[in-house]
Computed example of a mutant assay.
Amino acid sequence: MSEATIWQPRSAWAGLAAPGRHGRQAAEPGDEAGVRLSLREGIGLATLIAAEGQEAALARTLSRSFGLPLPETGTAHFAGERGLVWSAPGQWLAVAGTREGLHGLATALRGLAAVSDQSDGRALLRVSGRSARAALAKGVAVDLHPRAFRAGRSAVTSIAHIGAQIWQRDEAPTYEIAVARSFAGSFWSWLAHAAVEFGYAVESGAGP
């Protein structure tokens, strides 16, 4: 009698991103990589689509239960790892540091919004470091200059012809990018090539 197969979760970045230093190596001890790529694993993601005529009520409920205001067009609001990111008119992406962090959201928003779990459907990556903006500017189809895109801004755009959602977490700058899981390989291939001249470090795990 054959043994039952036990399925194990597989990272969207498995087989693509090897932790460690890549590309241009340190010129001297202690020289940091120009780009840091943090693989965001175990993150909770869900799309919210407001029911007709319920956006104001949705905003009140989210403020009360999620602790964040509903972002206006092209913006994102975060408190630690919990956040809301504008996605389209009447649509937002809810983010939590763990999948459990979104439990109960669909129940709380019943009648106010359609809630669709995206935790397994998207691959999420954090990009930071002194050369993060320069690396991303090679393929991101929006102006990332601080006068146009600062902390708290978000965009639904394309990166190297791949549909993506990007938001800026702080002025360091630190960005987070979500792509469809099926495009993780193509996106990683582009990003690794874009960052190689600056030297990049890959970090596994959710990170702070």
Rank of each mutant, 00 (worst) to 15 (best):
residue 102 L to T: 08
residue 138 K to V: 05
residue 122 R to V: 06
residue 125 L to I: 13
residue 135 A to D: 05
residue 172 A to R: 15
residue 135 A to F: 02
residue 113 A to G: 05
residue 109 L to S: 01
residue 111 G to L: 06
residue 175 Y to W: 12
residue 144 L to Y: 13
residue 111 G to N: 01
residue 179 V to R: 05
residue 151 A to S: 13
residue 173 P to F: 07
residue 161 H to Q: 15
residue 110 R to I: 13
residue 124 L to N: 12
residue 163 G to L: 09
residue 160 A to Y: 01
residue 121 G to C: 03
residue 172 A to H: 14
residue 176 E to M: 02
residue 115 V to A: 09
residue 125 L to M: 10
residue 168 Q to F: 04
residue 130 R to W: 04
residue 158 S to A: 14
residue 156 V to C: 12
residue 105 L to I: 15
residue 126 R to T: 12
residue 161 H to P: 06
residue 99 R to W: 00
residue 128 S to L: 03
residue 160 A to G: 09
residue 112 L to Q: 09
residue 118 Q to H: 11
residue 159 I to H: 08
residue 128 S to P: 02
residue 175 Y to K: 03
residue 159 I to E: 10
residue 184 A to L: 04
residue 164 A to S: 06
residue 154 S to K: 12
residue 135 A to R: 09
residue 152 G to Q: 06
residue 148 A to V: 15
residue 173 P to C: 04
residue 153 R to Y: 15
residue 171 E to C: 06
residue 128 S to H: 05
residue 141 A to H: 12
residue 104 G to D: 00
residue 120 D to I: 03
residue 125 L to G: 04
residue 132 A to I: 05
residue 145 H to V: 03
residue 182 S to K: 08
residue 167 W to D: 05
residue 137 A to Q: 13
residue 128 S to M: 09
residue 179 V to L: 09
residue 153 R to P: 09
residue 135 A to H: 04
residue 128 S to E: 06
residue 181 R to E: 00
residue 183 F to H: 10
residue 136 L to C: 04
residue 148 A to F: 15
residue 119 S to C: 02
residue 157 T to D: 02
residue 134 A to E: 13
residue 126 R to M: 06
residue 106 A to R: 09
residue 152 G to N: 10
residue 135 A to P: 08
residue 136 L to R: 08
residue 158 S to H: 14
residue 118 Q to T: 10
residue 134 A to H: 11
residue 117 D to G: 05
residue 149 F to H: 06
residue 111 G to F: 03
residue 181 R to I: 03
residue 151 A to I: 11
residue 175 Y to N: 00
residue 150 R to L: 06
residue 118 Q to S: 07
residue 153 R to V: 10
residue 135 A to Y: 00
residue 137 A to H: 15
residue 107 T to N: 08
residue 109 L to R: 10
